[in-house]
Amino acid sequence: MPKRVDHEQRRAEIIVGLWAVINGRGIEGVTYQAVAQATGISVGRIQHYFASKDDLILAGCRAVVERASDRYANRAASLEPHEALRDLLAEPIPHTTSFRLGVAVWYAYLVRGGIDPAIGAIIAEFAQGTIKEAQTLLSAMGTPRDQVPREALRLVSLSNGLTQRVLIGAASAQEALEVLAAEIPVVRNAPTSPTLSPSPSRPKSR
């Protein structure tokens, strides 16, 4: 009997090969031939799943987002809000060699997103989703409502900056994680800023 092909698995294998090529050559170096060499899958078979190189590159970007989102969702389901926030912020920190390669691929997509509207839209949606998740968790932790947007932006930006420093070797993953961990208790007990408190004539938001 002919061997049955798991098409989703085959697509996943091709995308992993794509990421390997991006890590070694950048997105500009992606070709069907390079991906075929990285995967051991023929060019014709790759073209069967991805009609163009741009389709393949775009699918790779979506897969990065989906994998990161699924990883976080699976862990966060059993965590308290402050633990989930810490996990959300720590998610991009490259703490292993394989994870460093994945983050490097993501940053290649970030650069590409500046000139490719389709990739840029995926990245923007993911970035906004991260901010919204941080806001949800901060609210659940009891952070004053008027501080939630600012704190979410600050913490996610801190995470992004630390990720870059680890990626270029300017800080270790452990140092980055310790900085993030130290920020969470501060937020959990953040008082309402006097300059942003409601006036006496207005009821306070609950």
Rank of each mutant, 00 (worst) to 15 (best):
D6S: 06
P185Q: 02
P198E: 09
H95F: 13
L137D: 00
Y109A: 00
W19D: 11
R75L: 12
G161M: 10
G113R: 00
A84S: 06
D6Y: 03
I131W: 07
R71H: 07
A108R: 08
E83Q: 07
A121P: 05
A73Y: 04
Q33G: 13
P117T: 07
H82E: 12
E178H: 13
A118H: 08
V64Q: 05
V186Q: 15
Y72D: 06
R62E: 12
V30S: 10
Q174H: 09
I131E: 13
N23M: 05
V166C: 02
H95Q: 13
L137H: 00
N189W: 04
E175M: 06
I168F: 11
N74D: 10
P194W: 08
L167H: 06
R100F: 03
G142P: 07
S42T: 15
D55M: 13
L88S: 05
L138A: 06
W19Y: 10
A12F: 03
E175T: 09
L79Y: 07
A182P: 08
L138D: 03
A176R: 00
A127S: 15
A38N: 02
D6W: 02
F99I: 11
A121K: 14
P81E: 01
I14T: 02
A190M: 12
P81V: 01
E80N: 09
S52A: 10
D6I: 02
T163E: 11
I168C: 10
L167G: 04
I93D: 03
Q128R: 15
S78V: 14
V16K: 13
A12P: 03
M141P: 07
S197I: 14
D70E: 09
G120W: 01
I119H: 00
K3M: 09
R45V: 15
S199T: 14
N23E: 08
C61A: 09
E133T: 15
S199N: 13
Q164V: 14
G24S: 11
V179N: 13
D6H: 04
V179Y: 12
D116W: 01
Q47F: 01
L153S: 14
V103Q: 09
G44Q: 05
P94E: 03
A68R: 12
F99Q: 13
R202H: 14
I41F: 12
V166F: 01
L162R: 01
V64E: 06
L89R: 01
W106R: 13
P198M: 09
K204T: 10
R112S: 08
V105F: 03
A124L: 15
G26E: 02
R10A: 08
Q135H: 08
F126Y: 07
L167P: 04
S197Y: 11
E125R: 13
S78W: 11
V16H: 12
I27S: 02
V105N: 04
E80Y: 10
T130Q: 15
L18G: 03
D6G: 03
I57H: 00
S205A: 14
Q128A: 15
Q135D: 08
V111E: 10
S201T: 14
G29S: 06
G114L: 02
P200R: 01
I41Y: 09
T97E: 15
Q47P: 01
L79S: 04
A51Y: 07
V65L: 07
E80H: 11
L167V: 04
R112Y: 04
L137I: 00
E91W: 08
Y32A: 08
T192S: 11
G142N: 08
V179T: 15
D6F: 02
R67C: 08
L110W: 07
E91R: 14
R10K: 10
I22G: 00
Q174N: 12
L153A: 15
I131A: 11
